[in-house]
């Protein structure tokens, strides 16, 4: 399993530049917001956490269509499915998700504090947003894996995956943003939405790979 993780990370670095694509998209979204909204610093810092979360969510969806498609095109997916008796397919999918997250989504989390400065956010707010992104974005990848598995046979599945996955990510977005606000706005709680966010990630960490494995097994042709 470790070898699968290492392979996917290596492929991500060597072949795709998937990490950079996501970060540049994230940067483009966040950098244009102040120009669109105008130089109202108070407004920017107030909408900052929400904009960061939306930007990261959309950037997460970018590379998802390649999660299984690359393996399908060169025939590796057949062998991963056949290996089910030795390496349970759901576990294989989970490892692929983790590798995808570490390779493509973790750079977004790392870039988020810098982009928070663009939004005139205070240090505490930036820290809270980065922390919620760190905890919440794996959930998006897990849901995305199920979408990617359903659309694996479609040559232009990228948009379909986004449409399939986006409604399901809304709870993650809501609790992620409300926890980020809770850290700075005084009466709002931080811990409760943050814990629900963590619970969502754990829950989807089981449900996402299991349903993706089911879709992959019945999707081979």
């Amino acid at each position: 399993m470790w070898s699968l993780f290492a392979r996917d990370i290596r492929l991500n670095i060597r072949a795709g530049g998937g990490a950079l694509t996501g970060v540049i998209f994230f940067l483009a979204v966040i950098a244009t917001i102040p120009f669109g909204v105008g130089p109202d610093l108070k407004l920017l810092s107030r909408i900052g956490p929400a904009i960061l979360w939306i930007g990261a969510l959309l950037a997460c969806l970018l590379g998802l269509d390649r999660l299984f498609q690359a393996d399908r095109e060169d025939g590796s997916l057949d062998l991963l499915v056949l290996g089910n008796d030795r390496n349970m397919l759901a576990l294989t999918v989970l490892v692929k998700c983790l590798a995808h997250w570490a390779g493509s989504v973790l750079p977004l989390v790392v870039a988020a504090p810098l982009l928070g400065l663009f939004m005139n956010m205070e240090p505490l707010g930036i820290g809270a947003t980065a922390l919620t992104l760190l905890v919440g974005t794996p959930a998006i990848t897990f849901i995305g894996a199920a979408g990617a598995a359903v659309a694996v046979a479609l040559p232009r599945g990228g948009l379909l995956i986004s449409v399939l996955v986006l409604p399901l990510t809304i709870p993650v977005l809501i609790f992620g943003v409300s926890a980020s606000y809770g850290a700075t706005a005084d009466p709002d709680p931080f811990l409760q939405p943050f814990l629900i966010l963590a619970a969502l990630t754990l829950f989807l960490g089981v449900l996402g790979p299991a349903s993706a494995a089911l879709a992959l097994r019945h999707g081979t042709d």
Binding site: R7, R10, L11, R14, A15, E73, D74, G75, S76, D78, L79, L82
Partner: peptide
């Protein structure tokens, strides 16, 4: 079983 299909199941970048 080993399944050797039309594709080679190898990554070109590795």
């Amino acid at each position: 079983c080993h399944y050797l299909g039309h594709q080679n199941a190898m990554k070109t970048a590795l």
